[in-house]
Design a protein around this nucleic acid. Structure first.
Lengths: 390, 390
DNA sequence: ATACTTAATTTATTAGTAAAACAAAGTTTT
DNA sequence: AAAACTTTGTTTTACTAATAAATTAAGTAT
């Protein structure tokens, strides 16, 4: 039980002030006071602390609205930097961002061998490369986050990453040994969900499910603005809920798992026979075919979309979320998936859900997994050092 | 954004003190100070307010442990009373409880006609009957809660109760007109989940799913100790997630819904042909048959249990909860359901989930729906009048 | 030039927790 | 049984943070 004291009050209010400056800047002290209801004096005092801590800058006077000009405040997004890495099965994509999530630098390495030690070394080099590009600033690098396609427990241990063939892998320890900053290892879909919630399409939603459809299907669950990790850290394994209770056996033990019908893997399996002479039937190839009007491919996309819709219906019935965001590789298929999904929603969802659900595809120009991973460190930084997150 | 001030601090601490007295009583001021970390003076001051508000009583001196005897404190559970009603399709069961959830009085009425006005009048009479039994006390009746088998929106409107044939029913308004206390209308499974979390088998779990298996299947989702209601208040409709994506059409619009295979309705449908001469094949009859060793009935129970296990597997994969509690009518089948469910878990769940999940059947001697409905009012009472719930 | 407006700081007040001193009521030691 | 110690709970004092009111600063409107 955490008791309350004046320090708590100050943390709360300081956090509110900072978050207002972050999201509404340029903003004056007077405006903050009006918006938050905090007394002008309180705002002034908290702002001056934030300025001393280099988290806020005075950027110059604003326009007068009939009286003294307000001094406009800016969030000093360059007070520190953070690294986020999206670790895939055959790539690792890293970003260096400022405290607002702006990408300062990015880099990608190709992974050809998923051997633990090789990948570890590649991740270390990728991080070092980005660290070397970190501009001089008061707080330096505040943390490194990595999104991994596997199950991560509450201690950050990678319990199982099927497509990497990893079991009980201690990436966190390895990174901590090499870099003296907080390390966050999180499931790729949870990181993606967080990225969408903080910086992406999910900012306005309190309850959203980010459905990561790649080789398999995972998800990140945001409930009341907060990532829900589950009791042991492995919530959201929705790729393995059964939509055919006695369907094909899945390696997970279950039968008829959703991802057997709706993932990139399922799509490739389904379409490969259409191109017996083509060695390299991959997603880009299929998209090209669809764009060229190949009816069989378009039909395959539609069928996958229908199965995706069936699974999403289950999610909506379970969570009653405001929004579902489709992420990862199959988000590229938006033009072909949106219709069948909406069609299934219309057929299968109760009317009460139909009105309240928004379907969004991730903006692939931003990597929400890498950004979300980076954002974890920013929150830890504020929570431990300066202000509480409200 | 709710800012912090000293009032907030006091609310938090007062709530902590009260909750310690509620759960640990008899307890002295000194002990509370030690347990909470609050200063002795702070505890004294907060306790004296609680005593003035009749929420806490000094019950006499305790045993000395080498010095002055401590004055033991008790939560005054009789400071107020609350009513909770479990509204079923053919019954309404009401309890009058004290502020600790002890049942003071209970009553049940039979519902033969689900016509809105008739049921409303029955509920009003049931509540009045319990009110008449309310002992004299400082706060009187602090609220009435009703758990309804249907979808309730955030404003307490019953959008749809299929088995009552209700659409857009304003029970809350009706009760408010007749009783001048806060009225809470909530879905039956959500109320049950809350009851289990506050008073029942789920007290120790932060993340739990209460699965109400009756005519249909609903659920209440507790996430981080809090009931998750969903964006429009209708989360947890897990009876309508599809486990046979192209299975039988369900009235909800979806196909192959879980409850078509796993509910009491499914069980009765499956077993009725076994007893062509029996007019009244109901749950009690089937249980009697199973107890008498009828292999066909036992087999039917096992099959239903398997389907329940398949659905629960989906839930575990999705939520990674600490605990699943089976509630409502089919909880009576625990002796026949536990094995097939555990069997399915063993076959279908990933090992990481197997360790962390506890399966519990509700204690049918307590009605968690009625108790949970009653508890809603207690929380509202403390939140609005005295202390915040922490 | 004077009166109004708005912004931000300074000063005084208030509310709540905490630390220390104290009072109350015991037990243990001699 | 007196003295010394313990534990409980209250009182006194100090401190911190928010707020209200007064003040200073820097404009605009007429």
């Amino acid at each position: 039980m955490k008791t309350g004291d004046q320090g708590l009050v100050k943390k709360i209010n300081k956090s509110i002030v900072l978050s207002n400056i972050q999201t509404q800047s340029p903003i004056s002290r007077a405006q903050i006071s009006k918006v938050t209801g905090l007394n002008k004096a309180t705002v002034s005092s908290l702002v001056s602390e934030l300025i001393e801590e280099h988290l806020v800058d005075e950027i110059g006077a604003g326009l007068s609205s009939g009286g003294r000009k307000p001094m406009m405040l800016f969030f000093n997004q360059n007070a520190g930097y953070t690294i986020g890495i999206d670790l895939g099965v055959n790539y690792a994509f890293g970003v260096l961002t400022d405290l607002k999530g702006n990408v300062i630098q990015q880099d990608e390495v190709v992974i050809t061998d998923t051997d633990e030690e090789i990948v570890f070394a590649q991740l270390k080099d990728l991080a070092q490369l980005l660290i070397d590009k970190t501009p001089a600033c008061p707080y330096g690098l505040v943390g490194i986050g990595i999104g991994v396609p596997g199950m991560i427990n509450n201690e950050g241990v990678i319990l199982f990453a099927p497509n990497m063939d990893w079991h009980n892998v201690h990436l966190k320890q390895y990174m901590e040994q090499h870099f003296n900053v907080p390390i966050t290892i999180e499931n790729e879909a949870k990181a993606g969900a967080h990225g969408e919630k903080i910086y992406g399409a999910g900012r306005a939603s309190s309850n959203l499910i980010y459905v990561s459809i790649g080789i398999g299907i995972g998800s990140g669950i945001i409930i009341e603005d907060k990532l829900y990790k589950g009791t042991s850290g492995i919530s959201g394994e929705i790729g393995h809920f059964s939509i055919e209770s006695n369907g094909r056996k899945c390696p997970c033990g279950n039968k008829g798992c959703w991802e057997l019908y709706s993932s990139e893997h399922a799509l490739l399996e389904k379409t490969a026979p259409l191109f017996p002479n083509e060695k390299n039937v991959n997603l880009s190839f299929l998209i090209q075919q669809a764009e060229d009007g190949n009816p069989q491919v378009i039909n395959a996309f539609d069928q996958i979309g229908e199965y995706i819709g069936i699974g999403l219906t289950n999610i909506v019935n379970t969570f009653n979320p405001e929004q579902i965001i489709i992420g990862n590789r199959l988000a590229r298929l938006e033009p072909w998936l949106r219709n069948p999904i909406q069609r299934v929603f219309k057929q299968r969802l109760l009317p009460y859900f139909q009105d309240s659900i928004a379907l969004t595809f991730t903006d692939r120009s931003k990597n929400s997994c890498a950004l979300g991973s980076a954002a974890f460190s920013i929150e830890k930084f504020f929570a431990t050092n300066k202000v509480t997150v409200v």
